[in-house]
Each structure stands twice: as structure tokens, then as C-alpha cells.
Write a protein that binds this DNA or RNA. Structure first.
Length: 504
RNA sequence: GGCGAUGUGGCCGAAUGGCUAGGCAGCGGAUUGCAAAUCCGUCUAUGGCGGUUCGAUUCCGCCCGUCGCCUCCA
């Protein structure tokens, strides 16, 4: 096992990684809200968690990974129910045919909306090789299934004097009761007060003991999703679900790793720490906090108003590049940069990734053929895997690791059994060729559509070979153009013309 | 204003107190009916100003730029 180190947001420095229990890592990742389709920025941070998990598994850890699905329907700034907004969107999408008939029979049923977007998320996530998506529902809990646990933790926090019921009936966490508040984000109470961020409006704070106190439970009969509780019928605060589900599903008060996007550091993760530690009395909720930086699109921050806001489906279905993109290409594009840098998603980069992914796929195929599928057993002491894993051991330095993989992949391998063995280990982390070894995920509609165009293109290949034999080069060129336009790459080999689907 | 990150060649993106990744694109060649793919070869860099040092892109200081968070946010 390598000496692993990670940049811990809790201490703002690189720290040697040691799990609490030898050879086991308990890890929690903040997951998606299911009021809309997940976008490529969301997936950047999710795939960072996936890469981390797969890397730790390569190092020999058993990784217990949990990710939540937030389906409670919190409120927006303008005090609108997100589930309500999702319902309005759903109605519009049904009208325009973007949501398949029968997928959501009643848009006013929030559980149907949530399930629809949950399925869509899992679908995209599986295509992208996000391992935990194959573990739904066991390791992918939904917040609405853990309301009782949240109420239990809230009760405990009140009993511990970490929470109180304000005059308006809302249950708040008292940040002053938790001296470590601010440890993760650096936003200590003094700084929050003197910082003058200007976003805490005084009117909304009147019922709180401290402006930074955050909501645990809000009695509200008008909220679409609501549950009975000792503090009235209403809904839970945003942060409490993660504290509860992490503890419940990972079975420990203190876990090893917690991941999420950098924007979750404050307030979300700061509040999770306060709640969890307040309820359990432990010093630590998670020993290592790892945060992924943002994804940019063509150098700009992704936003709806800029028109550069893309879902994974937009990319797959060619709405970004004008041609369909293989999920492995998007996966590669989203994991190829270090997680703490702002990854710049570009169309050119996607093309670069496609080239790399195609090479890796072809190499795999070549090795499978030459070794008759028999891979030799190799471990991390093999030079290639050693360098690869050592790069990743250094705070998940994926670019350094790829600098080992790519030259190796393009060199000649006299021992295909050994090379295939290495390949399998590399791909257990990268998961691009094929995208998800051990799991199959094929959309039958896509498959039949593709096989039809494949048969047509193969017919043209035969005609092209015939034309070349007859030295009818103008016809051959025309056929080649036609095949390319149909979305295939054309190769001339000794055995004749071969094609393969363009990856991006 | 507070906290944090970051600035490497046309682009993406590592590493390092001296031997200076990798990829894409480009250029030259082999190959090809022409291409594509492949193979061989090849060019371009460390934001600015000081300091430490025999020597700094790497360490230190200052300045400039970029980005994130500071109660919707991956």
C-alpha cells in the first residue's frame, strides 16, 4: 500500500491518510437534489468521489460508500417550494414532449417528480460509470425515507441544549452552543458577524438567538412535502439529512471521508459537523473532508443565463457538440484534471478525450484478442501500476497518473496476458474502456437504433471496398464521406474498410 | 472586508533547488489512389519585481491577475 495523502479541508493542508479501521474506508458523498436533471458540474464532483473510491479500492481498501438523494423539496430564496417549481417545469416538459408519456402521471405528486429525476440521475450516473449508482437503493438513501431519524437527532440536539424552539415554532441549531463552529470554513462566529456579507437580512433573524443559527425543523402546513413531528407538521432543514444518513448507513459516529463540491463547505458541511458532533458528543464527524472545485465551460462559469448550462444528457445527445458523445468520453473529460482545480470543460477538450478514450478502448480490444482474454495476475508492485498508484496516492493526482498510462498504452506489449492484467487494474479506476467493468448498462432503444445505422454503414463499407477494387475512386470517396456523415470513423485495413462509431 | 485556492508553451495539464511530464493541435517523414488510423522525428513555457543561493519555474517577500465561499448552489 502506498503512503496516501489528501488535502483535508478541515485543516487546510495535506495530511497522511489513515482509516479508522484498517483496510476499511467509510465515505459519504453529498448527492444530488432531484428537482431537475443533474448537470455536468454536478457530475464533476460526483465523479471525483467515484475516482477517490475506486482508487482506494485499488489500494486494497474495502470502501463503504454512501451518497444521499435530496428529495425533500426545500425553499428557494424567494420562499418558493422547489418541489412546486419542479412540478411547474414538469408540466411544461410534458407538454413539449421532453418527458416520455406515462413517466409522471401526476406532476402534482412530489414523490413522482422526485422519483422521475432520481431515475434520470441514476441513469446518467450509471452511463458515466459512477459505481455507487449501481448500489441504489442500499447505499443511496433518499432523505424522505429518513425523516424519523432526523426527528430523533433533532430531539437529541434539543436535549443536549444544542437546539431550541424559537417563538415562531421553528427549531434552530444554536451555533453558540458549538465552539467549533467555523472550523471547516473559517467562518467563525466573530467573522460572520464582522464580515458584513450583507446577505443575512435582519427581519428574517428576529426569532433566532444568533443570526447564524440554522433551521432544523420548520412547522409549515403549506409546504408540499410535510410530516408530523413533535414540533408541528412541517419539514426538516437542509443539513440534517446528511448527518442522519451518514451515521445510519455507515454505522459510525465518526466516518473517514466526506466529499462534496466546494460550495457545500459553508454552510452545509459546517452545519453537518455541528449537528453530528452536537448529537454524538464526538470531536469529529469526518476525519477527512475533500472538496471538489468548480467546473467551467469554455472558460466561463456555468450558468443558465450564459447559455452554457449543460446536463449530462445535453452532452450525450449532441446538444453541445452537434454530435453524440459517448459517456466514457464525458467521464474522462470530467475526471482528467485534479479535483481541486477549476476544470475547464471545452468542446476541444472533449475531442481530445475522445481520442484518448478510443485508443484505450482499442488497446483493450487488441489485448483481449492476443491473450484470448486471459489476464495475468498483477499487483501494484508492477512498475506501471506502481507509478500510477503513487501518483494517485499524492492527493489523487490524476494528471500525473495519466502521464503514466498513456505512454504505456501506446507502446508495444510483447506479453499480452500481463498487459491485460495491468489494463484491468488501470481501468478499475479510470472506468472508460469499457466504461463500467462488471456492470452492464445498455439502453435497448439506443442499441436497436444504433444497430440499424451500423448495418447500413457496413453495407456502404462493402460497396466502398468494391469501388476501390475497381479503382472507381470518386465513388469510393463519396461513400467514405457518407459513412463519416453517418457518425462513424472509417479505417482502411488489409482486411478491408472497417468502421466504428465516432465517440464525440 | 474575511477565509481559501490558483497563475506553466497555441490549448489541456504534471513535476522539480541544477538532469526541465504527458496529451491535443502544429510541423517534417514513412504509409495511402487520396485520406483516415498507425509509426518515426520535431518546435513552443514556468504573471511581474526584488531577496536567499554557485544555481530558482521550484524557497521567501511584495505586487498584479484569475477563481470559489461568506446562509439557493456540485
Amino acid at each position: 500500500m502506498n503512503n496516501i495523502q489528501f488535502y483535508n479541508s478541515l485543516t487546510n493542508r495535506l495530511e497522511p491518510f489513515h482509516s479508522i479501521e484498517p483496510n476499511v474506508v467509510r465515505m459519504y458523498s453529498c448527492g444530488p437534489t432531484v428537482y431537475d436533471l443533474a448537470h455536468i458540474g454536478n457530475f464533476r464532483s460526483f465523479l471525483f468521489g467515484d475516482l477517490l473510491r475506486r482508487y482506494l479500492e485499488m489500494e486494497g481498501y474495502h470502501v463503504d460508500h454512501v451518497m444521499n438523494i435530496t428529495d425533500v423539496g426545500h425553499m428557494t430564496d424567494g420562499e418558493e417550494d422547489k418541489m412546486n417549481l419542479a412540478a411547474e417545469r414538469m408540466k411544461a416538459n410534458k407538454k413539449s414532449g421532453r418527458v416520455p408519456e406515462g413517466a409522471v402521471t401526476n406532476p402534482d405528486d412530489p414523490y413522482q417528480i422526485a422519483q422521475y429525476y432520481t431515475n434520470a440521475f441514476l441513469d446518467d450516473a450509471r452511463k458515466l460509470g459512477y459505481k455507487i449508482a449501481f448500489e441504489y437503493p442500499e447505499r443511496v438513501p433518499r432523505a424522505t425515507e429518513h425523516i424519523a431519524g432526523m426527528q430523533e437527532m433533532i430531539g437529541k440536539l434539543i436535549a443536549n441544549d444544542h437546539a431550541y424552539v424559537a417563538e415562531d415554532g421553528v427549531v434552530y441549531f444554536s451555533v453558540e452552543s458549538f465552539p467549533n463552529y467555523g472550523q471547516l470554513s473559517g467562518n467563525t462566529l466573530e467573522k460572520l458577524q464582522s464580515g458584513a456579507g450583507g446577505r443575512v437580512s435582519v427581519e428574517n433573524q428576529s426569532q433566532k438567538r444568533h443570526p447564524s443559527d440554522f433551521m432544523l425543523w420548520k412547522p409549515d402546513n403549506h409546504h408540499i412535502m410535510k410530516w408530523d413531528s413533535p414540533w408541528g407538521t412541517g419539514y426538516p432543514g437542509w443539513h440534517i439529512e446528511c448527518s442522519v444518513m451518514a451515521k445510519k448507513l455507515l454505522g459510525r459516529d465518526t466516518i473517514d471521508i466526506h466529499t462534496g463540491g466546494e460550495d457545500l463547505k459553508f454552510p452545509h458541511h459546517e452545519c453537518e459537523i455541528a449537528q453530528s458532533c452536537g448529537a454524538t458528543g464526538k470531536d469529529r464527524f469526518a476525519n477527512y473532508w475533500l472538496h471538489a472545485s468548480f467546473l467551467f465551460v469554455e472558460g466561463e462559469k456555468m450558468s443558465k443565463s450564459q447559455g452554457n448550462f449543460f446536463t449530462a444528457r445535453d452532452v450525450f445527445e449532441g446538444r453541445v457538440t452537434q454530435s453524440n458523445v459517448h459517456p466514457a468520453v464525458l467521464r474522462f473529460e470530467l475526471i482528467k484534471a485534479h479535483y481541486r482545480t477549476n476544470l475547464n470543460f471545452t468542446r476541444k477538450g472533449l475531442g481530445d478525450s475522445a481520442t484518448t478514450v478510443r485508443r484505450l478502448m482499442e488497446m483493450r480490444q487488441d489485448l483481449e484478442e492476443r491473450s484470448a482474454g486471459e489476464a495475468a495476475q498483477v499487483d501494484l508492485s508492477h512498475p506501471v501500476l506502481k507509478e500510477f498508484s503513487q501518483a494517485l496516492a499524492d492527493d489523487l493526482n490524476i494528471a500525473g497518473a495519466l502521464a503514466v498510462v498513456i505512454p504505456w498504452a501506446t507502446s508495444r506489449h510483447s506479453n499480452p496476458h500481463e498487459a491485460l492484467g495491468i489494463w484491468k487494474v488501470l481501468n478499475s479506476v479510470l472506468s472508460v474502456a469499457p466504461i463500467n467493468e462488471g456492470y452492464e448498462f445498455l439502453d435497448s432503444e439506443t442499441v436497436s437504433e444504433e444497430s440499424e445505422s451500423l448495418m447500413q454503414a457496413q453495407q456502404w463499407c462493402a460497396e466502398l471496398d468494391e469501388a476501390r477494387r475497381e479503382k472507381n475512386f470518386s465513388l469510393a470517396d463519396e461513400l467514405r464521406t457518407r459513412i463519416k456523415d453517418a457518425g462513424f470513423e472509417v479505417r482502411t485495413t488489409k482486411e478491408g474498410t472497417t468502421i466504428q462509431k465516432t465517440l464525440a
